[in-house]
Simulated assay, not measured.
Amino acid sequence: MRTAGIVLAGGAARRLSGVDKPMLELDGVPLLRRVITALAGAGPIVVVGPERPGMPDVRWAQESPPGGGPVAALAAGLALMPGDTGIVVVLAGDLVAVRKSTVDKLVGALGAADGAVLTDDEGRFQWLIGAWRPGRLREVLPASPEGKALRAVLGGLSIVPVPGAPGESADVDTPRDLDRLTRSSQPSYRTLS
């Protein structure tokens, strides 16, 4: 059964003054590259958002309208999935600690459910770290997906919660996130130009 990947890498990063979050580097590696690496063995991998340099072996898509939110981005990514895709792993493009082991854990937990979603240290679903049956995703996507919340659209599906390791769901949303990650692991952050 084919496993594919969709990486949601659009968004305006308003809380980070519009910086291109997926291209922030952690220990010299852009976050987007880390996420793509976690999808090793999946194919195709569709990155939804502006095309960026240095990301070979991915297909690019753009949500409509650009900046239309995660459900619109998911719809754009699904539009490029081959018909024989049995599982699609959906990941945010600004994840810090996602690994291939995270993806394997999600895919392994899926079973007969519609989706498997990583939960954080407090047991909350991390909607942008999951493995899904693409047919079921297509069934619940609204005709006008822009501005819709993933939780509202996907929450009615049968979902297996997958406990994450401490920090496994970490992402970068605010300057405080950057400061916390910098202090905790001494990474080097910079934005690629």
Rank of each mutant, 00 (worst) to 15 (best):
R59T: 13
T85K: 11
A61W: 03
P66V: 10
L91A: 08
V103D: 11
A143T: 12
V140F: 00
T102I: 08
I129Q: 15
A109L: 07
E63C: 08
Q126S: 15
M81I: 09
G93M: 02
F125I: 01
P82R: 12
K105E: 12
E63P: 02
T102M: 06
S64Q: 13
A131Q: 06
A79Y: 05
V98H: 03
G83K: 13
R151H: 07
A152I: 00
P56W: 03
L78E: 08
Q62H: 12
L157Y: 01
P134Q: 09
L95W: 00
K105F: 06
W60Y: 07
P82Q: 12
A131C: 09
E63N: 02
G115C: 11
G68K: 07
M81S: 08
S144L: 09
L128D: 11
A61S: 13
A79W: 07
W132Q: 03
M55V: 15
A152W: 00
W60R: 09
A152Y: 00
P145K: 05
E122C: 09
Q62V: 15
D121K: 04
E51V: 14
A112P: 07
A76K: 00
I87Q: 10
A149L: 13
A61P: 01
M81P: 08
L137T: 08
R138P: 07
D120R: 03
P70M: 09
A79M: 05
P53R: 09
R124C: 11
R59E: 14
D104N: 14
R151P: 00
D120I: 06
I87C: 15
V89R: 13
W132F: 14
F125L: 15
